[in-house]
């Protein structure tokens, strides 16, 4: 069976201006129990890298927000149960 791409809005939002992934920080990626966050390269802007939510598989549990050293991460309630 062929696969389709289905869009989904994700609950974890990263403020690229505050994120220090370009300095080598991976704290949010490291602590996530579901392992849904990743670091990506930025095509433009002053930062070369930022964290983002790659997989919409979130328990809205908050270690990523609580442990982020710069307060760049916000955990929202997933839309389906908001």
């Amino acid at each position: 069976m062929p696969l389709a791409q289905t869009q989904t809005s994700v609950p974890v939002v990263v403020d690229d201006d505050l994120c220090i992934a370009d300095k080598g920080c991976t704290v949010c990626v490291d602590v996530c129990p579901l392992d849904v966050l990743r670091i990506k390269d930025m095509a433009e802007g002053p930062k070369s890298k930022t964290a983002f939510m790659q997989y919409d598989e979130c328990w809205y549990c908050m270690p990523c927000e609580a442990d982020c050293p710069t307060g760049a991460v916000t955990v929202n309630i997933p839309y389906l149960l908001k």
């Binding site: 129990p33 598989e57 328990w59 389906l80 149960l81």
Partner: peptide
């Protein structure tokens, strides 16, 4: 499956 339909919106940690 939680009634919200969100697969990871479980009572337990879904891991």
């Amino acid at each position: 499956l939680p009634t919200s339909g969100y697969m990871y919106g479980t009572y337990e940690n879904p891991t």
